[in-house]
């Protein structure tokens, strides 16, 4: 099974799995130009994520190891999500009873998420988990699990 890892913590990596280490890889921001939809369909004007796009779209499963930042996902991960819009079409469908962008590809990977639980309260945690569920639903992926763990304290 082809897999991929996107991590903000942990040192996990697999020899046959593509790794995107968000701590070492600041992602260029989406500039809102829509070039990826109406000038070069499916391709962003920035090319820093071309390798990621290929591995993401051909993986069967993507595992995320996420940190919590200000009670939400980090700015770098949010930038990655913003930049994933070329993987979908501009056209909208309403079959599910709400607006959804049509898929550009036939299939999208299943998602597994682990995160470091540093929330101030359960409301923040619910917002974080609901947001991730929703995002991958919009991305036509199935979220298998979202698991929070308290960060380890090293003495």
């Amino acid at each position: 099974m082809k897999t991929m890892i996107v991590r903000e913590y942990n040192t996990v990596s697999l020899s046959d799995s593509y790794l995107l280490d968000l701590n070492a890889y600041p992602i260029k921001g989406c500039c809102g130009c829509w070039t990826c939809w109406w000038k070069t369909p499916g391709r962003c004007i920035h090319h820093d994520l071309d390798c990621f796009y290929h591995h993401y779209i051909t993986a069967e499963k993507v595992t995320f190891y996420l940190t919590v930042s200000q009670g939400f996902i980090s700015a770098n991960l949010k930038t990655l999500f913003d930049r994933m819009i070329p993987l979908f079409l501009p056209y909208t469908n309403y079959g599910s009873g709400e607006s959804m962008h049509d898929p550009r590809y036939e299939r999208y990977p299943d998602i597994e998420i682990f995160y470091q639980d540093t929330f101030l309260n359960t409301t923040e945690k619910q917002i974080f988990e609901a947001y991730l569920q929703r995002t991958f639903y919009q991305f036509h992926s199935k979220t298998n699990s979202i698991t929070g763990k308290m960060p380890e304290v090293r003495s």
């Binding site: 921001g29 989406c30 939400f72 949010k78 947001y131 995002t135």
Partner: peptide, 19 residues
């Protein structure tokens, strides 16, 4: 701000991280 993928654009989150 505009809504990007059901939330704020990445650059807004960068500001939030500084607050």
């Amino acid at each position: 701000m505009p809504l990007y993928i059901h939330a704020m654009p990445g650059l807004v989150m960068k500001l939030f991280e500084e607050l």
